[in-house]
Nucleic acid binder design. Structure first.
Lengths: 333, 333
DNA sequence: AAGAAAGAAGTAAACGTTTACACAAGGCAA
DNA sequence: TTGCCTTGTGTAAACGTTTACTTCTTTCTT
């Protein structure tokens, strides 16, 4: 079972290791005869190059790491997919790790990965690049809201939230509410900021109707139920992600109310599930897969530049997708 | 930017590399004084072990590869999650690669991964272990239907399909139909077999109402529309996966019919989306995340045994989950 | 025909670890 | 004292590649 080495191949083909290496990598010059013999021997011995040895001398791993807070749900799977596609196009391997909510755990994973990747893609909703103890180029996904931090790719959560709220207002909603994500989540914070800013534009002086959720369906359900209990029951809700929005719709229907007639709902992300809620969910589309691809390209630039700080950050603007959950005649108030 | 090596640390701490290595790995004996000096130096120099060098001498990578046909959708993201959780518990890293439908591409990926992993987890709906050119322990997920092939973990698709069909029959469906997966997909084949076997039990001699789909929502929609066009319109449909079932439900409703009153629907997989279709989808639950975990454990056993063929295969039985899409008074015929 | 340039192959020195082995110093039994 | 464990440390040889040099043929130039 022990794999054969280049030396074995060379011996078998009756050439030196150097020639064998040249053949396998296709660089340098060799006669057709030698090439054929080496290839044949490699095939016969089922030679597969030892990656560690190569990386030792080239100091390149051809691998990038991807750190996610969790791998649950369609959002993350889309990120992985995008990164994977882009990585494969560049012949890079992908080391994935999920499920580390807190900073300490993330730091541990980063440390154990650092020795084996050329660069790191980190999606941490709680940390920004500065907090991470890192020795390789790093690109953060999400996190910091403004475009100021370099070598980060993010979503313009604030603008997206504003768009969502204006859309609700345009559809005649007057008593606006928000179900937010976890308070410590940076994306959630921005979406909340966007809601607060725009809601007070639409309805100056009104108290903010906000309930904190946790980005899960159950959380959305609970939060919505609480909002419906208020004396000034909202007629339009901007929910910080689609998963919670799905729960919110359920809660509204359980309360005997109609979506969107009694309460209009809009989410965020446009995960595939959004088309299947009933009614289908209006939302803000973030091209998640595309975002993953771009993040990888950005990381590659950073790696090639040798220094992450040379690469400009990117901010992606979410796009409004109107489905049934928010569509009603203007001024239904 | 060039990382510091163990030699640097040793020099800085004024000890030999051997001692430094001993401290870093916590094996062998060192005085408290030396340990402290080494740790301090490592910290100060931001030492991170070069992974390739270590693997070169230990011939261990502490990494396993995961090959998926595609990373699209919740099914695969759950697999990744399960494997990741189990891998992390064992301090293994996870090299993921998706999007290679055909055998040739899969073989190429396997080859490029082989040198850098201790073992491989392969989920290929078209190939079984024998077809793969492999030099490391390998566990296949899905694929071969029977429990005969060793070192494979799979779902009992046949039994699941039988359960689904019997459930439809018990709910009064008499004109049973099936929307299958792609003909070359091994899981799809078994589900079809299960349908065929059980349907002819329920309604002996009847022609089989079957339409081939492609595991996507659109495919399910198309197939269902075609089935509804038949003179003997089915009143119960077993759909080979939940994604297609979602499309099928849409098609039924577009045709002005009701689910489950006119046509009962049951899917397969129990992806999270299944709870959000309208009506909620009955289905066969495969503990996908759990399956991923078990697959990894199995691979670890194979690696430790040094020989894959020592490890027994596992077959997981899917479990019936009854929701609204198939529930109606008995004998509504 | 002689010398230079180019082409093909080999030699050996890295790369950063781990670990078998050798060595030194101290403690303890005789 | 002598010899033998034990405990801590250092030395150096792997591990499997890549690649800068070196060497030996050719082939071309003049």
């Amino acid at each position: 079972m022990k794999g054969s080495t280049l030396k074995d191949v060379a011996r078998e083909a009756d050439v030196s290791v150097a020639s064998a290496s040249r053949v396998m990598n296709g660089i340098g010059t060799v006669t057709e005869d030698v090439r054929a013999r080496v290839l044949e021997a490699a095939e016969r011995l089922r030679y597969v190059p030892h990656w560690g040895a190569r990386s030792l001398v080239t100091s390149r791993t051809n691998t990038v790491g991807l750190l996610l807070p969790d791998i649950y749900g369609e959002f993350f799977s889309e990120i992985i997919r995008g990164v994977d596609i882009a990585a494969r196009a560049r012949d890079l391997h992908l080391l994935v790790s999920g499920s580390h909510g807190d900073l300490a755990e993330a730091a541990a994973v980063i440390e154990s990965m650092s020795g084996r990747v050329d660069g790191l893609l980190v999606m941490s909703p709680v940390a920004s690049a500065g907090d991470l103890p890192v020795t390789v180029p790093l690109v953060t996904i999400g996190g910091r809201p403004d475009g100021s931090e370099r070598c980060a790719i993010g979503v313009d959560n604030f603008a997206g939230a504003c768009t969502a709220v204006r859309h609700l207002a345009a559809n005649g909603c007057r008593r606006l509410a928000h179900i937010s994500g976890p308070a410590e989540n940076l994306d959630a914070q921005e979406r909340f900021r966007g809601f607060a800013a725009t809601a007070s534009e639409v309805d100056p002086g009104a108290e903010l109707r906000v309930r904190e959720g946790d980005f899960t369906e159950e959380g959305g359900h609970r939060a919505m139920a609480a909002l419906l209990d208020r004396a000034d029951r909202p007629d339009g809700v901007f929910v910080a992600n689609d998963m919670m929005a799905a729960g919110a719709i359920l809660a509204i229907k359980e309360a005997g109310l109609a979506v969107p007639e009694d309460v209009a709902v809009i989410g965020f992300d446009d995960i595939p599930l959004a088309r299947f809620t009933s009614p289908p969910l209006s939302t803000l589309r973030v091209g998640v897969c595309e975002l993953g691809k771009q993040a990888l390209e950005m990381l590659v630039s950073a790696i090639e530049a040798g220094d992450a700080s040379e690469v400009e950050g990117i901010v992606i603007s979410p796009q409004l997708v109107v489905r049934e959950s928010s569509k009603r005649g203007t001024n239904t108030n």
